[in-house]
Design a protein around this nucleic acid. Structure first.
Lengths: 356, 356
DNA sequence: CTGAAAGCGCTTACAG
DNA sequence: CTGAAAGCGCTTACAG
C-alpha cells in the first residue's frame, strides 16, 4: 500500500498460466504459436487470456526474445508534405510487418539526428530510416556513421532515404535523381527561350541543395545560357524562404523571365510574392518547383515541377530495412524524377525588359 | 557459433561494471543519476561507458523500472495535413519530455484503431492520443472504451483529440468547436445574400461530419434560409470526394451560389471541378472550407475557411497526457475556430439563375 | 505435447 | 557512497 500505492498492476503470463492450469511456457507457446500445443490446452489458454484480458508485455518479450517491433524514422518535420508522404509509404510497409513506426522530428538540427539515433538504439529498434537531405559537414557525418555502425552491430538495420550512403557504413540508400530532374527542368526552360533565369537554391551545405543546383547549372552551361550570380539566392526549404527571396529579387530590381526554386514549398512562396507585385505567372515570369507535392495541382496557377516518387521511396526504404527487398548492387537505388508541366511555365515575354 | 551465429552481441551494463571495477548497481545509479555517487566512481563509470560505447537497453530498463518512453498517436493518415499538423504539435511536446512518438495510421478503418490500441498497450505506452473524428457506431465505441479502460488500468494515459470523450472512460478530450465554426461560416454567407447553398458533408456517421453539418444547418434555419436536400451530398474527407461531388452537383444541373465543404481538402477538389466547368470563384459561386490547412493561402483562389488550432490541439493533448496540463472540469477542453475570410467568397451574382 | 529452470539486461529496496 | 540479491515478465533450450 505504501511502496506501490498507485502502481498499476497488470495481469501477467503467470496469471494466465495459473488460471488455465498450465505452465507459463505453455502459455507462451500458444501466444506465439511457436510450438505444437494440443487443442484442448490451447483452448483453456485462450479462454484464460480472454477472461483475464491479458495483454503481453512487449518489453519483457523483446528482452527475452531480443526482437523489436519498432521502426524508427528520422525526419526534419512530419508536417512538411515532403516528409509526410515518405512517412506514409513507410507506415504502410511497417503495418504489413506488424511493426510500429516511431517518428523523430529533428527540425533540421543535425545534433538531433544523432540523439534520436541513440534513443532508437536504446529501444533496440528493428531498423531506422534516415530521411531528407544530409548536411555535408564531415564531422557530423562521421558521428552519424559511428552511430550507424553501432546500430548495425546491435543487430539493427539502417537505410538512408533521400540522401547518400554514409561513409563506411553497410547501409543501403534510396536516393532521388535530383541532378537529372533539375537538368530536365533547365532544358525545358531553355527550349522555351528563357535566358534570364533566377534560382533559389534552398539551404547551403545540404546534399539535395547541391545536387539540384548542380544539375540545373550544368544544363544551363551546356546550353550556353549564363546563370547570373545576382539571380541565385539561398535560404531554407520553406515557403517563407521562397517568398522572402523572391521579394528580395524584386526589390533589387532583378530582371528575369523565369524563376526556379529547389522545391515546391519555396515555389508557393515565390508565386505569392510575384502575385503581390502584380506580376503575372506565367505570362511575365515562369515559375517551377521540385518534388510535386500533392498540392501542386491546386496552387495558383498549378505548378510545373519535377515529380518525385516520395511515397514509393519510403515504402522501398522500409522494405529494404525489413529485408523484403534485395539490396541492389552498390547499395543504392536511385529513383528517377519526372518533369510535370502544368501552368506556371510559358515562353518568355517577347518585349525586352524581362518581367516588367 | 551454431546457436548464435548471427546473434548481435551488445555490451551490457555488466560489462561496463566490470570495466569500471564497480557493481552493476552503481553503474545504473550513475546512468540514471538517481543516487549520489562519488565523483571518482562516476568518472570511472562514464569513461567505461564511453570506451565500451555502451547503449542502455530500453526494454530491460522499461521492464525493471516499469517506465515507458513511447507516446502513441492514432491517426487516419499522417500524410493528411490535418493530422500531420496535430502530430507536429504532439511531437514537439513529446520531445520536451524525452518521449518517442509512435504513429499509427488507421487509414480510416475503425478496426485498426482497436488493433493499434492493443499494440500500444503491449508496448506499455506511456500514453496514447486518439485523434480525428470518431465513428459513432456504439459497438465500436464500446470496444474502444474497453481498450481504453485497459490502458488506464495498466497505468497508461489516454487523451482524445478532435473527438468526444469515450463513455465511462476517465480520459480527457481536446475538441474543436465545430458547431460554432460552421455556424459562423453559415452566417457569413447568409449576410452576403446567399440563399442557394450547397453543402458537402464528409463521411456519414462521424462526429466531425455531424457537428459541422448541424452547426451549418441550424444557423441557416435560424436565418430562415432553406437548405435544399438535393444540394447536400456526402462522401469522404478527401479532395477526390470534393471534386466528384461538385461534378455530380454540376452534372445534375443544381443551382447554387455558394458551396461549402466540411473540410479544406474537399474544397480544393471543389475549386478544381468548378474551374474545369468554367465557373468563376467567387464571382459566380462562392466556396468555403474548414480547418485552414497551411496551403489554403496558396490555392486558386485563396480559400475562405474556418481556422482550427491544429498544432496547438496536438500539443495540448500531449501535455494533458504528460500530466503537465491540469485536466479541465468535465474533462474536455474545446478549442474555438475562427472564420478566415480570403478570396473564395463573394456576394452572390445578382442576375437570376445562380452560377450559370 | 508439456514443464522446470535459466536467462534476457536492467532497477531498487535492503544492508552496510 | 556502494554492493549483493531479488525481481520485472517474458522465451527457449533442455528434459521428459
Amino acid at each position: 500500500m505504501t511502496s506501490r500505492q498507485r502502481a498499476a498492476t497488470s495481469v501477467t503470463l503467470a496469471d494466465v498460466a495459473a488460471r488455465a492450469g498450465v505452465s507459463p511456457a505453455t502459455v507462451s507457446r500458444v501466444l506465439n504459436d511457436s510450438y505444437p500445443v494440443s487443442a484442448s490446452t490451447r483452448d483453456r489458454v485462450t479462454r484464460a487470456v480472454r477472461e483475464l484480458k491479458y495483454v503481453v508485455n512487449g518489453h519483457a518479450r523483446a528482452l527475452a526474445a531480443s526482437t523489436s517491433m519498432v521502426v524508427g524514422v528520422i525526419v526534419n518535420d512530419v508536417s512538411d508534405p515532403f516528409f509526410s508522404q515518405i512517412v506514409r509509404g513507410i507506415q504502410t510497409e511497417a503495418a504489413h510487418d506488424g511493426k510500429l513506426v516511431v517518428i523523430c522530428n529533428t527540425e533540421g538540427e543535425p545534433a538531433r539526428e544523432l540523439s534520436y539515433l541513440e534513443l532508437l538504439r536504446q529501444q533496440r529498434a528493428h531498423s531506422v530510416l534516415l530521411t531528407g537531405a544530409a548536411v555535408d559537414d564531415p564531422v557530423h557525418l562521421a558521428e552519424l556513421a559511428e552511430q550507424g555502425r553501432g546500430l548495425l552491430a546491435q543487430g539493427g538495420r539502417l537505410v538512408l532515404c533521400g540522401r547518400p550512403r554514409l561513409p563506411d557504413v553497410d547501409a543501403p540508400a534510396v536516393t532521388f535523381a535530383n541532378h537529372a530532374g533539375a537538368s530536365a527542368l533547365a532544358r525545358h526552360l531553355v527550349e522555351l527561350g528563357h535566358r534570364r533565369i533566377a534560382y533559389l537554391t534552398g539551404p547551403l551545405g545540404r546534399t539535395t541543395t547541391a545536387e539540384r543546383f548542380a544539375g540545373f547549372r550544368e544544363q544551363l552551361a551546356a546550353a550556353g545560357v549564363p546563370l547570373a550570380p545576382e539571380l541565385v539566392l539561398s535560404g531554407g526549404f520553406t515557403r517563407a524562404a521562397g517568398y522572402d527571396n523572391t521579394r528580395a529579387l524584386l526589390a533589387a530590381g532583378a530582371e528575369f523571365t523565369a524563376l526556379v526554386t529547389a522545391n515546391d514549398a519555396m515555389a508557393f512562396g515565390a508565386l505569392a510574392a510575384l502575385r503581390e507585385h502584380g506580376i503575372d505567372v506565367p505570362d511575365q515570369v515562369s515559375v517551377a518547383g521540385f518534388d510535386d507535392l500533392p498540392f501542386c495541382v491546386d496552387s495558383a496557377p498549378p505548378l510545373t515541377t519535377v515529380r518525385l516518387p516520395l511515397t514509393e521511396a519510403g515504402a522501398l526504404a522500409a522494405r529494404l530495412a525489413a529485408g523484403r527487398e534485395p539490396v541492389p548492387f552498390g547499395g543504392v537505388v536511385t529513383l528517377q524524377g519526372e518533369l510535370v508541366v502544368r501552368r506556371t511555365v510559358n515562353r518568355p515575354p517577347s518585349q525586352p525588359g524581362g518581367q516588367r
